[in-house]
């Protein structure tokens, strides 16, 4: 049953040394993420959510402890292109059309022209942007741009999707629409999604588990199981079950 877990964070800590000042961004975090799980990292800003995500993505190394991704070090997992990243801003290359933005990772792995097109088109279909393939990023709304970012992250068919506050810059309506889309993509593709957010109800609505991070120093103060049935529907947003889970999550923050 060991291979049931795809990400294993084992007593990981991170201390930043900036100009003689030491900042403990994360202290002794242990967390195992299951294959195919939708898991949220929730907390106020500065509690180390991004730091934790970046450790998984091999963008920073833990000061102590270890991170294992699919039985490998984060570096090996990155070189094997096992995860896709989605950022808070869409991070599109503005001189490329939408389809060519999605093709970018496929170009990097030197896929042929035809296959590239076909694969990128499929990804755009998945996020409902087929008709905008030849537009430029500046011609799309923020929500649509963020969808392109998701399509691009999925292009190499990675097992893991790492998302850092992907919807926090969007308005409420667009965000809720993207929640539905993301859940449907997740259902169809069986990805493991690590989703960073500071929005409590967003994390509860989307996730199987919510990891509550508290600041000063950043630490994992609780992991809340969300036992709402799948698939999640829009009516659940106002259900008493969700409200009570939100209350439970809110109650598990420490020292804010």
């Amino acid at each position: 049953m060991t291979d049931e877990y795809i990400i294993d964070i084992n007593h990981a800590s991170k201390v930043f040394n900036n100009q003689k000042k030491e900042v403990t961004a994360l202290s002794d975090v242990s967390l195992r993420i299951r294959k195919g799980e939708f898991i949220s990292l929730l907390g106020p800003s500065g509690c180390g959510k991004t730091t934790l995500l970046r450790m998984i993505a091999d963008l920073i190394k833990p000061s102590s402890g270890s991170v294992t991704v699919d039985g490998q070090t984060p570096r090996e997992a990155r070189l094997a292109r096992k995860y896709g990243m989605v950022f808070q801003s869409p991070v599109l290359y503005e001189w490329r059309t939408i389809i060519r933005n999605v093709e970018l990772p496929l170009e990097i792995i030197k896929l042929g022209r035809e296959e590239r097109r076909e694969c990128a088109m499929k990804m755009l279909e998945l996020v409902g942007l087929r008709d905008f393939a030849d537009h430029y990023p500046s011609q799309l709304s923020g929500g649509m741009q963020q969808r392109v970012g998701i399509a691009r992250a999925l292009a190499l068919n990675p097992q893991i999707l790492l998302m850092d506050e992907p919807f926090s810059a969007l308005d409420e309506f667009t965000r809720e629409k993207l929640h539905e889309d993301l859940l449907s993509i997740w259902r169809r593709t069986n990805k493991t999604i690590v989703f960073v957010t500071h929005n409590i109800s967003e994390s509860v609505y989307l996730s199987d588990r919510v990891c509550v991070l508290s600041p000063h120093p950043g630490r994992l103060s609780a992991v809340v199981d969300v036992d709402l049935p799948r698939p999640r529907t829009a009516e659940m947003r106002s259900s008493p079950e969700l409200a009570s889970l939100v209350e439970r999550v809110r109650g598990s923050f420490e020292g804010i």
């Binding site: 963008l59 990155r78 995860y83």
Partner: peptide
């Protein structure tokens, strides 16, 4: 070129 753009390339091991 923004940090995120660099990180994206990094994540693709470019």
């Amino acid at each position: 070129v923004s940090r995120e753009k660099h990180e994206l390339m990094y994540s693709y091991a470019a």
